[in-house]
Every structure is written in C-alpha cells, then in structure tokens.
C-alpha cells in the first residue's frame, strides 16, 4: 500500500506538529532580543522534543504501562520514552532555574533584560575607557 507524502504527513501529525513547534521555539530564541523570551523559546523547543518522544512511544489502542493483573492480555504503550522524558523534564527545569538566576544577575548589573541594550551599554562603557 503506497501512500502519498501528504497522507503520510497527515498520519504522522504528532511528529510533524512537534517539529513545527521546534521550529517556532528555534525562531523565538534566534529572533528575540529579550533574554526572558529567549529562555521561553528554549523551553518551547524542549517541550516539542518531549512531545516527539511521547508520540514515539504511543500505540493506538494501548493503555498506560501500569500492570493490571485483572487483564493479562492488555496492550501497553511503550514505557521507555515516557521514562526518558521524566529525566528530560528535570534537565529542562535545572537549565531554566540557572538561566533565571543569570537573568536576575544581569538585571542587577545593567537594569535591563534586552540583549541589544546590554550590548549598547557595554560599548559605551568601553568607549569611555571604564570597562566594567
């Protein structure tokens, strides 16, 4: 049974969706100069990857992978990607916490959260001969 590319794409909609979200996150990181928005972009990207993994583990008609002794023949979904993403979420939280701490510190130094303004303030400091 040969499917056209469009039909295959429609069939694989969770993967396509996760990669589109990945692109949106990537665009957010690259185009925004606000540091907090950059961090949000990173979080969007990470979430999209989580979606990709969880979609990989899904089986149509499967039940959550908690052994039900009453139903020995149950079809469980793949537990491995879900388990991996628990680790992934912890990593994402750690990075977010550290980045927020850095943003607080940068705000104390420069009084702004905009990368371009920070760049300008630094250049002015250099030109006046009193680098930070």
């Amino acid at each position: 049974m040969e499917l056209t590319i469009g039909a295959k794409l429609l069939n694989n909609y969770p993967f396509l969706g996760s990669l589109i979200i990945f692109g949106i996150g990537c665009y957010t990181v690259l185009s925004n100069s606000n540091l907090l928005k950059k961090l949000l972009g990173i979080n969007i990207m990470e979430s999209s990857i989580f979606l990709f993994y969880v979609a990989t583990g899904n089986i149509r008609g499967g039940v959550p992978p908690i052994v039900d002794l009453a139903q020995p023949e149950a079809l469980y979904i793949n537990p491995l990607p879900t388990g991996l993403m628990l680790t992934g979420i912890v990593v994402s939280i750690s990075v977010t916490g550290f980045a927020l701490a850095l943003i607080i510190k940068l705000y104390r130094f420069y009084g702004t959260m905009d990368a371009n303004e920070i760049f300008e303030i630094r250049n002015e400091g250099k030109n006046n001969g009193s680098s930070s």
Binding site: I103, K105, L106, F109, S132
Partner: peptide, 8 residues
Amino acid sequence: ARSTEATF
C-alpha cells in the same frame, strides 16, 4: 558583568 553576560 562581562562573565555573567558570556555565561548567559
């Protein structure tokens, strides 16, 4: 300030 910015 400089190293914090580089770190971020």
